[in-house]
Design a protein around this nucleic acid. Structure first.
Lengths: 337, 337
DNA sequence: CTGAAAGCGCTAACAG
DNA sequence: CTGTTAGCGCTTTCAG
């Protein structure tokens, strides 16, 4: 049915090896021969059979990206960046959604689907430090996120503590002293929530501002509705605060909404900062000051690291950790009058 | 290196055919043999080589989804739904971003990447009716969206006209008569903008309300900022309106923000409706009334149609068109006091 | 019910 | 510079 190397070879009057050489840009082919082969390829509309090539070469040309779910904007934007980065190095991306479920994440690590790709970029949410050993797999793997540190693989992520400290310092520099937190996770140490809370505390300590449990609002999930609920709870506690640090943008956006509904002016009465620099942070009312955690850089480095491991698997270099550059993006929600 | 059928066969003391039979759930295998083989598989940690299987079977187990970009929430949520639907039928999904660029879309249709997948679900944005013939490809293809109709392939999309008419009728039923449009496209006939505008006009006609070009705002793109800009322009025209129909949610959200900044109350002074039922529509201030275009159904049917074409390519059935069920989702932005 | 053997389309030694 | 040939690991007739 489909046209093969043999067909092209026959049409061009050469052997299949020569056709193969032309296709793979093998240098030592006479220009005239090359031209003849290319013509035959064009005429017959030959396209290499990628499965055969994979079987032979052991490379598929695809990498997998596993993440919780695309309908969470952060991950959609991450996927966008990863696909772009992969495209630059000639790889396609298979996306697998885990729903942040630990069992599914664990399964996925040893699923036979792995055989379909050259490597995996993995952003777990359900797994924790105790599962680190499970990352010691036999294929190229790059870890994303803050669920597991010091694991057996390359790890690319953001400077959560530093960035959260910077965000808090930024609010303090604007004269805010009572900075509420939305989205903390009870007792968490690593994980985005734990790390960002730690950065917050560091900034408080450095400024000599006491930490007040009363203005910390906990949520399990980080959707906009959780931010809204957390803020309602905060308001019902009847405590004082003059700023809110949403541990991510959607939380901040949800909290900001409730704040405004309750009659507070943002940033007049309360200034608000988020974390992630989602597209939508730019268009909220008021637009949201936030932390750009370096998503594009994370994607770029993750793909590059993975490709290095794919291309030179023998290089048993120690696991590498890369922390992307962050920056505060100032917008209206923290503007000073 | 990796363990193959031969290794398993040797370990279990059977031939590779028997192992293959076990793996593929071929019925006529003696239970004892089956057990022995399964044990060997478990011990050796055998995983089938998917490339070899693909080469042999002609099926890859992957489908491609081509869309403009994941950072547009509508497409992220569509991708989410498609991945879930594909998973249910045992397929993985490769996502390709076109940026809505016609050239890239055209290229992608004949790229050798197609060989890596069993079929393509394609949501073009740059291509138009004139390019319909280009969809006549030799592999299973399902078209999404409203750029091309009556093309040579199966097509799954939403009831744009009906849904837009329903949205408009809904506003009219609440007593609104001066319904502004945000996001129209100059001279467009098909395409989401063209079709939704047509539904709007039909509702107006049916209600005997004159169409007024003065309250139609055009934009090229459909980002939130375009909705904001369009609304500013509308306000600067100094015309009267008591409702806004954003041709999608992000436009509506952007317009709603400007409206509120300008001191209008939503829905008090102006009620606002969107289209798409994005997650974020649920959490805006006020929450946004919108049209759920049946995204989950679209994904489900698209995958199912594609699989049918993949599994029975000989069935040269005529191209099918499926229009998903829509519904109005009532929220605060159109609440009547 | 199970085994032997052919071959999917390609790449890479190895010859020439 | 180009041709021959041997598999990559699997599925699948076809025998037994």
């Amino acid at each position: 049915m489909s046209v093969t190397l043999h067909d092209v070879a026959r049409a061009a009057g050469v052997s299949i090896k020569t056709v193969s050489n032309v296709i793979n840009d093998y240098p030592h082919v006479r220009p005239a021969t090359r031209a003849r082969v290319n013509e035959a390829i064009g005429e017959l509309g030959y396209q290499p059979n990628l499965s055969a090539r994979s079987l032979r070469s052991g490379r598929t040309g695809a990498i997998a990206l596993a993440l919780p779910e695309l309908s969470l904007s952060y991950f959609a934007e991450l996927a966008d960046s990863v696909i772009r980065a992969a495209e630059r190095v000639g790889q396609v991306v298979i996306i697998e959604q885990t729903g942040g479920d630990r069992e599914r994440e664990l399964q996925l690590l040893s699923s036979s689907q792995r055989k379909m790709t050259d490597g995996l970029i993995f952003s777990p949410l359900g797994m924790g430090m105790d599962d680190a050993a499970r990352l010691d797999v036999s294929y190229p793997l790059v870890l994303l996120g803050e669920r597991i540190f010091d694991g057996p693989t390359d790890h690319v992520t953001m400077r959560n503590i530093d960035a959260a400290r910077a965000a808090t310092e930024y609010l303090i520099s604007q004269g805010r002293r009572r900075i509420a937190i939305v989205g903390a996770h009870e007792g968490e140490v690593v994980g985005s929530a734990g790390l960002r809370l730690r950065g917050y505390r560091e900034a408080l300590d450095a400024a000599g501002i006491p930490f007040d449990e009363q203005i910390i609002a906990y949520t399990t999930l980080w959707h906009r509705s959780n931010g809204a609920t957390a803020m309602r709870e905060l308001l019902s506690r009847d405590v004082d605060f003059d700023a809110v640090f949403g541990l991510n943008d959607t939380l901040a956006l949800g909290a900001m909404r409730v704040l405004q509904e309750a009659g507070y002016r943002v940033p007049g009465d309360v200034s608000v900062i988020g974390f992630d620099d989602l597209d939508e942070a730019m268009y909220s009312l008021p637009s949201l000051t936030t932390v750009d955690p370096g998503r594009a850089e994370i994607a770029e480095i993750a793909v590059r690291s993975l490709m290095e491991r794919i291309e030179t698997p023998q290089a048993v270099e120690a696991p590498r950790l890369h922390l992307a550059q962050f920056r505060i993006v100032e917008r209206e929600s923290t503007a000073t009058a």
